[in-house]
Design a protein around this nucleic acid. Structure first.
Length: 845
RNA sequence: GCGAAAGUGGCGGAAUUGGCAGACGCGCUGGACUUAGGAUCCAGUGGGGUAACCCAUGGGGGUUCAAAUCCCCCCUUUCGCACCA
């Protein structure tokens, strides 16, 4: 028995006594509806994706760090993917909407130190809490595919991947100047130290020389770059950021030679056409060349002091410094193209890690070199003619970086732009003094971390056999639990765990040592989406067939902050696994969407330390999940940052109550075919208006849903409810009420499910049985059109016409409109413009 | 410093991409029903004007029959990149 179905008077005046009685009652009822249907969905396993999908849709939010406090920002992000998942379900797709935990990482270790709890215990507890919270929020994840990166059945495969990279020669160890965060006591990858500060704690990073594991992501730089062109379902700004991060530049390497020696000093330049304008060169202070050039004794002290000063400066100080400085080394190099002798300087504006760590300086055509030359009174030569005139070249007022015609360049004089560059490179290659060369800004990825709570590096160091991977049948290398001192000392806590470190070499059987470091957590998050396709596989990382069935990810939703980290790494992994033959595609994601952040009312980021975290649990407990969700959707388009205010809930709550009244006012005992159409000609004026309003609303919802603009989707339903006349027929009421249930289902799922079952009387979930309505284009095409009538671009009236009215008739009707008539009186019409379905404009004198 | 995006009522935001600016909602004002209203319903709500109308999308110019939307200059904000040779 369904409430309100048997007594027609109750239907007419549908203030449902059960649902709507008092303020108190309303609030508690959305809460009750929420709980009821969450249980139901869990019971029928609504979210569980099939093993082998027919018509698949893979939608996924980013891997989450289980900090334990799900806030309104998470609620928003996951509501986005949830709404998409639900709509796709209604459209008949086999939907996978999985979730997982990026569960290794420093916060667990910090908490362990603080609360004397093991990081694993802390992490797993947080996962439980977070998961329960997400469920209470009504987010429908397929928990049967949940992955947790800190559990051995997952990190076994992270280790396996490490070994595959090693076997392909893409994982290697080197001593390098690395970013060290003294606060976190660990090294950082370049993208984690962008701007000279640690991505986690935002403290300045230092440089240290350490022997560390790196992945050769640079070997994939070209493919990572080329792949971006194909990602047309990605936001442009994200693509731009990735291109910039990879930072390809095409040029040449030219070997300058140390005077009176055989020592080559190669330089990288994108402007070989300016090589005759070189008047000095500069080495990075950290460059090994500095030690090789034989600095004369009288320069030694000054040079050493400069290098020391550069080294002790923080990254921020070095880059913030506006004026370039340097020191003369006392040595000279020979320009191999013209045999000229040029002084060698040392300056910290040259980066040791880019190119060759040495540059040729052309003050005439490079602003930095110009500034440097001015400061130290070095020669300035112009070798590219851009038509400035002799006067300008004599005065030397600035550097001129434009392309032009080569001059003062011996045999190359007269060569223009790109041809000049080409000619110089060809000549260098002929003479074996240089070569074409392409450089990338992206650096190899530093994997090692000197911390406990991470995935152990499955490598063994043997004095006899060198570096030996742990045999794959012995994976996973499990993190030792026991009594471990997590206090950061600057080296990995595992280094002091004897039972862990001491191991027999898998090759010679002799005494050997495990690698004491753990992996960057970005390793774990670079492949989790693949594990979703086959989460329980014990014998392989995943079954390639299952991966092929689900990939690519159709919609990936996450923050823009991962543009140069995660979103490059997971593309890199995808390409690597493609090369291994495990994947059939090189790009993992068709469509990427960057959601906006949720800040507090003052616009500040929500954080525990500020104490301004808004918990969705409190809101959901007070208002129910749907009013809160609608309020979040309604606040702004999904990509925009919002300042959270609970005030919005008032409006969405009222709206849901009004919608509830409308839905319950309909009679679902007769023909309830929601896919039916109506012939416009047969309808009363009211029905026509309502029917058309629904078709237009649906059209807008489809359009806006596609671009994830849920605020206007919601507004479209609100507007529809406002438009519908009171005295529509019972049939039309049934049709529209039932369809409002359908279109609201992705946005307000609990309430829609309640209506679907209790008001419409269905026994199967709205997400499985309802289907998504299709627009009655015939009705829209047949609808009467309202045109604005303008005089000189100003609106003076309106006319309504049938859709097929010809322009001449439209003009006549418009001229007959009283206000138009008034404005036309005594004027001459010079021109008439009719825009189909929009307006008619008379240009008058 | 360079680059990108944005700037619309008291507030959040719309505007199907050059075609009726301010949809939808909050808030506010008035009214109804009420013992009560922080509930609900009805009406109003960019500014000016009794009105006809006029003025309005950060400011100033321009293109166009028509500009929030396109172009130029300036201001402000928010993000990226910050010596990549």
């Amino acid at each position: 028995m369904r409430p309100g179905r048997d007594d027609p008077t109750e239907r007419r005046f549908p203030l449902n006594s059960e649902l709507i009685m008092s303020t108190e009652k309303q609030k508690t009822d959305f809460v009750a509806i929420g709980e009821k249907w969450q249980q139901y969905w869990a019971g029928i396993k609504l979210a569980e994706a099939p093993e082998t999908p027919q018509k698949k849709y893979f939608v996924m939010p980013m891997f989450a760090y289980p900090s334990g406090d799900i806030h309104i920002g998470h609620f928003r992000n996951y509501s986005i993917t949830d709404a998409i998942a639900r709509k796709k379900m209604m459209e008949g797709y086999d939907v996978m909407h999985p979730f997982g935990w990026d569960a290794f990482g420093l916060p667990a270790e910090e908490a362990a130190i603080k609360n004397k709890r093991h990081p694993e215990e802390w992490t797993l507890h947080n996962i439980e809490v977070s998961k329960a919270t997400l469920q209470k929020c009504g987010i429908l994840f397929d928990w049967s595919r949940e992955v947790t990166s800190c559990l051995p059945d997952y990190y076994k495969w992270t280790q396996w991947l490490f070994i595959q990279f090693f076997k392909k020669g893409l994982a290697y160890r080197k001593t390098a100047t690395v970013n060290w965060c003294p606060t976190c006591n660990t090294v950082l990858a370049n993208e984690q130290a962008a701007g000279g500060v640690c991505w986690r704690c935002e403290n300045p990073v230092e440089k240290r020389e350490l022997l560390q594991w790196f992945f050769k992501i640079t070997e994939y730089a070209e493919r990572l770059l080329a792949g971006i062109d194909e990602l047309d379902g990605w936001p442009d700004n994200l693509r731009t950021i990735q291109r910039g991060w990879i930072g390809k530049s095409i040029g040449a390497e030219v070997d300058f030679v140390l005077e009176n020696s055989e020592i080559k000093i190669p330089i990288f330049t994108t402007r070989p056409d300016t090589v005759f304008g070189v008047t000095f060169m500069t080495l990075a202070p950290e460059s090994p060349l500095v030690e090789q050039i034989g600095i004369p004794d009288d320069r030694r002290a000054e040079v050493n002091a400069y290098i020391e000063a550069a080294r002790s400066k923080s990254e921020i100080d070095r880059t913030a410094q506006t004026e370039k400085d340097g020191v003369f080394s006392g040595c000279y190099a020979i320009n191999p193209l013209n045999g000229e002798r040029v002084p060698i300087w040392i300056g910290d504006y040259v980066l040791a890690t880019y190119g060759t760590g040495a540059v040729m300086a052309v003050p005439g055509h490079d602003q930095r070199d110009y500034d440097f030359a001015k400061k130290y009174d070095l020669e300035i030569k112009y070798v590219i003619d851009t038509g400035r005139g002799q006067d300008w070249y004599d005065k030397k007022p600035a550097a001129d970086p434009a392309y032009g015609t080569m001059m003062n360049s011996d045999r190359f004089d007269g060569q223009v732009g790109k041809e000049g560059i080409r000619a110089v490179i060809d000549y260098c290659e002929e003479q074996k003094i240089g070569r074409a060369c392409t450089n990338y800004k992206i650096r190899d990825w530093l994997i090692s971390r000197q911390r406990y709570w991470g995935c152990p590096i499955p490598m063994i160091h043997c004095k006899k056999c060198g570096i030996v991977p742990v045999p794959e049948d012995q994976l996973p290398v499990e993190l030792p639990r026991g009594d471990i001192d997590f206090m950061p000392t600057g080296r990995s806590p595992l280094a002091d765990v004897k039972e862990y470190i001491e191991v027999d070499c898998p090759e010679c059987g002799g005494k050997a040592e495990r690698d004491a470091d753990t992996m960057d957590t970005f390793m774990c998050s670079s492949w989790y989406f693949l594990r979703y396709c086959d989460p329980k596989n014990e014998t392989a990382i995943f079954d390639p067939k299952k991966a092929a069935a689900w990939l690519p990810i159709d919609m990936y939703v996450g923050g823009i902050e991962h543009a140069t980290g995660h979103l490059i790494y997971y593309r890199f992994f995808t390409k690597f696994l493609y090369d291994l033959g495990l994947l059939k595609l090189e790009e993992p994601t068709v469509r990427m969407f960057n959601h906006g952040m949720v800040n507090d009312e003052q616009g500040r980021k929500m954080s525990k330390s500020v104490g301004n975290v808004v918990s969705p649990i409190d809101l959901v407990g007070e208002h129910g999940p749907d009013p809160v969700r609608l309020a979040v959707f309604f606040a702004a388009p999904s990509e925009k940052e919002i300042q959270w205010s609970s005030a919005g809930i008032t409006g969405t709550e009222r709206f849901l109550i009004r919608a509830d009244q409308f839905v319950r006012s309909a009679d679902f005992s007769g023909n309830t075919d929601l896919n039916r159409t109506f012939g416009m000609a047969d309808l009363s004026a009211e029905d026509k208006k309502a029917y058309l309003a629904f078709q237009l609303a649906l059209q807008k919802i489809n359009f806006d849903f596609e671009r994830l603009q849920f605020n206007t989707c919601t507004a479209a339903v609100m507007e529809l409810l406002n438009i519908i006349p009171n005295d529509i027929s019972a049939e039309m009421r049934t049709y529209i009420a039932g369809n409002i249930v359908r279109v609201l289902a992705p946005l307000a799922p609990h309430t829609a499910e309640e209506w679907w079952a209790k008001v419409l009387g269905n026994s199967e979930s709205v997400f499985r049985a309802a289907g998504w309505p299709s627009v009655d284009q015939t009705a829209i095409a047949a609808a009467t059109i309202t045109l604005a009538c303008q005089i000189n671009g100003k609106v003076r009236g309106q006319i309504s016409v049938p859709p097929d009215t010809d322009n001449a008739t439209i003009e006549e009707l418009a001229k007959a409109e009283p206000r138009v008539q008034k404005h036309l009186a005594g004027k001459t019409i010079k021109k008439t413009i009719v825009v189909p379905k929009r307006l008619v404009n008379f240009v008058v004198q």
